[in-house]
């Protein structure tokens, strides 16, 4: 199995150390993304999704202690030397940020932004400049000649996100990390941007780790979904099964708290609040908010275990979702 996946994370733990956080910000995270596959990565704000994706590019918080392995196409980025790391960053893995306005150099024209990305991944400058226009067309921008000469502040958020997608896919990366790419956009633009992202990704044959807190969005484009809570993967199964038969109480609660059209039921909020970084819990991180929590839950950290086609980190998963 190893070496064939576009991304494989093996028992990754990241700890900021005493005084800065009460618990590891990631503990024992394992996941894989096969070539060409779209995998969802869902969780609340602060659950550790972004830290995980950043780790894939070896962008860690300062002075963090890290254990585990992060393999990009079989190469461990955590132990890679600087040169290897730079070539992974510039060519093999591309990242799409949540806020395109912040992620794009504000004083460069769009043409410069696109060209410098191509040059970084080893292209010639003249070729890069020539390709820019085609890149914009590929993400559905109608007037590329005009947009190329504009500055980021002259463009809308949706436009910029499309430009960032174009830039990210320009170097034909094998793996795309999309860190909540549509969160900063309004809903109509969101749908458009996601469809462009998905289409371009499919054209390029890239694998994608799609980070979001929107379960529906994840289900719409992803084959499998990982659910993260308080720095741990709590559930992993195919998107369809996750919706039909959520195993972990947290996933169930997430689904129950999502409003749906044409359904007259109460939206159930999850009681309590997510664990802050300073809080430590002896057992399951979700236990304080969990309706199913028993005595054992507060004492023992549940390991991820296989139930049917799913992986769940819950001691009472069988009772929660009898299959």
């Amino acid at each position: 199995m190893t070496g064939t996946e576009a991304l494989r994370i093996e028992s990754l733990s990241v700890d900021l150390g005493r005084g800065r956080s009460g618990r590891p910000i990631l503990s024992d995270v394992s996941m894989y993304v096969r070539p060409g596959e779209t995998v969802g990565f869902v969780g609340e704000s602060g659950s550790g999704k972004s830290v995980t994706t950043r780790t894939v590019l070896a962008m860690l918080p300062a002075k963090a202690s890290v254990s585990g392995r992060v393999l990009v196409d079989g190469v461990d980025v955590l132990s890679a030397d600087r040169r290897r790391l730079r070539s992974i960053r510039s060519g093999q893995v591309a990242m799409i940020f949540q806020d395109p306005r912040a992620g794009i150099n504000p004083v460069r024209r769009i043409r410069e932004y696109l060209a410098e990305g191509l040059v970084a991944s080893g292209g010639r400058r003249a070729d890069a400049l020539a390709r820019c226009s085609a890149l914009l067309e590929s993400v559905g921008i109608r007037d590329p000649a005009k947009v190329l000469e504009q500055f980021p502040h002259q463009l809308s958020g949706g436009m910029l996100q499309r430009i960032m997608i174009a830039g990210a896919l320009a170097s034909e990366p094998a793996l795309l990390l999309a860190d909540e790419p549509t969160t900063a956009l309004d809903v109509t633009t969101q749908a458009e941007v996601v469809s462009i992202l998905e289409r371009r990704r499919a054209d390029a044959g890239a694998a994608m780790l799609f980070v979001t807190h929107d379960l529906d969005l994840a289900a719409a484009i992803c084959e499998r979904i990982y659910v993260m809570y308080a720095g741990r993967i709590v559930e992993h199964q195919s998107a369809a099964d996750l919706f039909a038969n959520p195993r972990h109480p947290y996933t169930r609660a997430l689904l129950a708290s999502t409003p749906r059209l044409g359904e007259s039921r109460r939206i159930e909020a999850i009681p309590g609040r997510p664990l802050s970084l300073s809080e430590t819990v002896a057992g399951c991180g979700f236990a304080p908010r969990c309706a199913f929590a028993g005595d054992l839950c507060t004492r023992e950290v549940p390991a991820l275990r296989r139930i049917g086609g799913a992986e769940v980190a819950c001691l009472r998963a069988e009772e929660v979702a009898p299959s």
Binding site: L85, R89, A94, M95, D99, A102, G103, I104, N105, A120
Partner: peptide, 13 residues
Amino acid sequence: RPYVEAYRQQGFG
């Protein structure tokens, strides 16, 4: 500012 981090993630030195 985030665009600087974006540059890093694009592999710029």
